[in-house]
Nucleic acid binder design. Sequence first.
DNA 1: TTTTTTCTACTGATTTTTAGGTATTTTAAT
DNA 2: ATTAAAATACCTAAAAATCAGTAGAAAAAA
Lengths: 209, 209
Amino acid sequence: MAKLLTAIVDDHPIVIEGLKVLLQNEENLQLVGGFCNGSAILSYISTNQVDLILLDITLPDINGIELCQQIKDISIATVVLILSNHTERSIIMQTIQNGASGYLLKNSSVDELRHCISEAVKGNICYSKEVMEIISRPSKNHIQDMPRLTRREKEILALIAAGKTSQVIGQELFLSPLTIDTHRKNLIQKFGVKNVAELIMTATQQQIL
Amino acid sequence: MAKLLTAIVDDHPIVIEGLKVLLQNEENLQLVGGFCNGSAILSYISTNQVDLILLDITLPDINGIELCQQIKDISIATVVLILSNHTERSIIMQTIQNGASGYLLKNSSVDELRHCISEAVKGNICYSKEVMEIISRPSKNHIQDMPRLTRREKEILALIAAGKTSQVIGQELFLSPLTIDTHRKNLIQKFGVKNVAELIMTATQQQIL
DNA sequence: TTTTTTCTACTGATTTTTAGGTATTTTAAT
DNA sequence: ATTAAAATACCTAAAAATCAGTAGAAAAAA
């Protein structure tokens, strides 16, 4: 069996170097490189074969969730394993939805990493212990998932978070302030909150802002 | 010259392992261990000599900023170098105030890490390039430091973030709603924002909520 | 092409917040 | 013991947000 061509994508050089060393002794892995951003790995896989990618969510250019999708678009056979610090249920789910084969937190043990890699290349989906708990029994912080927001809603949410009133937002977007009020109302309803204070709080917790 | 006895404190095993390997070839360093939490390193240094500690801010038990102080209380000669992801000016300043000899972001290059270690053990304070920029020319996100909030203000800020109105907060704290309005006003003024939306946004960005 | 979703805009009433202040009491620090 | 800071509470008035609806036009999906 040929060695798995493996790439690491993480914005922390130290993590990349660390993972490289940790994995260089693995019998069935062949490291092809470490990448600090999304475009680097995308351009690499367009011309080179990569069997396995260890992918971080937080990257300087592209969001890891979308990057996952783009990787699978270019190379459907490449197995993507997420290695992230984000503990939000919705983020985990989105990555799997976008074709990832597993999700580990960075505080996973090295054994867990090894195990998940071997499961993932077998075609199974694999989570680290802690992630398994997050997706199984939703605890206090992970009760509600992120509501689906429309483009306009996201735009207006950001402007509200910047402290702008409906009047001002209306002027900026060339819309009636009454329209902004409607969006405001819909945002509050979608998030199931009582007012903007709670709205902004919830949205930031869910990484929307 | 004897080798520097060096410890790594980070809640990510992968980072610990990575740093270990990266530093094991350094001539003048002798790694004494990796620690996943604050109490582990504290109990270690009470009975063992440690010359240099690479310290993360986010830890499962104790906050790294306070841990830094506690380390220096036990062993004033131990050099502490912060290795963190937090880019908030106030956090950086607090660690230095608490006795740290330098601050690096985790996306620093390995060379920068080496350089900062050598500077720190010489007795100098050393920052990575990016951190230097944060503390030198405060950019958009780091303009204002965290204002000093009183106990009451923090308490009320949290209740506002939970979506409660002044009426409700007043009832809960057995205070006049007018008093809550005053605190609300003071919070908005202290943070230099226009309304609660921006207040909550700013407060979360500065890790106060 | 039809259906559904999103975006737009409105009415009217009510609640809440914000802006300008002032002022007394309590608590903490010197 | 004195000073400074924090916490309390109030007034007036304007601005903004929230609630509870409806509804047409545009865009996207089926």
